[in-house]
């Protein structure tokens, strides 16, 4: 019992640290790809410290609560994800709970943005939901294929079944699912080429237009947590998870850096191009994976 409570406290903090590390690393690697020197790896922390010391302006109660809801959603999802043998809420829900809770973050942002009353926010929010519609379809197929293949909805069971290099990426139906998931990963994380939601040049960072000071700090914490969730889920579902945190972290790092190279060189999709793309290739691979999983079974 005590261990569970400790895990509940430790795992969000660990997720935050890793997420922020990834943010800093991504800025540094991006800079090197652009042939720049780049900021120090601690730059996201410096930004957050500054933002917490800046004065911020509120636009109403929902404006505050939306940010909190979005952050809470992310923290709760983290409690469901096994992180190197550590999974505080392993007994309940599993993949289905994750699937639903992952929608809390955009929902919180939408609630908060509705109070902000800025036209850019409405555009950003509508794009966010359209994009979710785009990636939820292949994501659902991926999850279904995995659940069919392992005959369980518990993510802990799935990780256990993959022990000893029986990674699901090495079996054919789930290889297709892994490809599909890897393609939609940037859309889930909201980074390029799917960063149309918060495109700073056209809609002035979308849902975050009215955020300043502490709100922006919370939004960037949320982004860091989201980065952790998206990649940790990939590692858990396809790369066999890990028994100890270090191995898990290394696996995450590999996935993240491969994803970052794609992120660094591609331009941004328009929203209808993004939907067209997401409903074509990832959906095709995910659907094929589901069919094969059903047949093989």
């Amino acid at each position: 019992m005590v261990i569970k409570i400790v895990e509940m406290i430790v795992s969000p903090i660990l997720a935050f640290v890793i997420g922020v590390f990834f943010l800093g690393l991504s800025r540094k690697i991006m800079a090197r790809i652009h042939r720049r020197y780049g900021p120090p790896i601690t730059q996201p922390i410096i930004d957050m410290i500054k933002l917490f010391y800046q004065k911020s302006v509120s636009h109403g109660i929902l404006f505050d609560l939306g940010v909190v809801l979005s952050l809470t959603g992310s923290v709760v999802v983290i409690l469901f994800i096994p992180f190197g043998g550590m999974c505080p809420l392993s007994g309940s829900g599993g993949l289905l709970a994750i699937l639903y809770l992952m929608l809390l973050a955009p929902l919180g942002m939408a609630l908060s943005g509705g109070e902000g009353a800025n036209p850019n926010i409405s555009i950003g929010i509508s794009r966010k939901f359209i994009l979710s519609l785009g990636y939820e379809v292949p994501f659902l197929f991926v999850i279904l294929a995995i659940m069919t293949h392992y005959k369980t909805i518990s993510i802990v069971e799935i990780v256990r079944a993959q022990q000893g290099l029986h990674w699901s990426i090495f079996s054919l139906p789930l290889l297709l699912s892994a490809i599909a998931y890897f393609i939609i990963l940037p859309a889930i994380l909201g980074i390029r080429p799917f960063d149309i939601v918060s495109a700073p040049q056209e809609i002035a960072s979308g849902p975050m237009v009215e955020y300043g000071g502490k709100y922006l700090a919370f939004a960037s914490i949320d982004h860091a947590l989201h980065l952790f969730i998206g990649i940790a889920l990939f590692v858990d579902l396809f790369l066999g998870g890990a028994r100890e945190p270090i191995t898990f972290f290394i696996k995450m790092l590999v996935v993240f850096i491969i994803g970052l190279f794609i992120n660094a060189v591609f331009p941004r999709f328009r929203i209808e191009q993004a939907i067209k793309f997401l409903w074509k290739w990832p959906t095709f691979f995910a659907f094929l994976g589901l069919i094969v999983a059903l047949v093989v079974r």
Binding site: R27, A31, R36, Y37, G38, P39, P40, Q43, I46, D47, V57, P200, Q201, A204, S205, M208, V209, E210, Y211, G212, L216
Partner: peptide, 12 residues
């Protein structure tokens, strides 16, 4: 960016 100077999207 190496000095921490970034373009911000909005005045907020």
């Amino acid at each position: 960016e190496r000095f921490g100077v970034l373009p911000a999207a909005t005045p907020r």
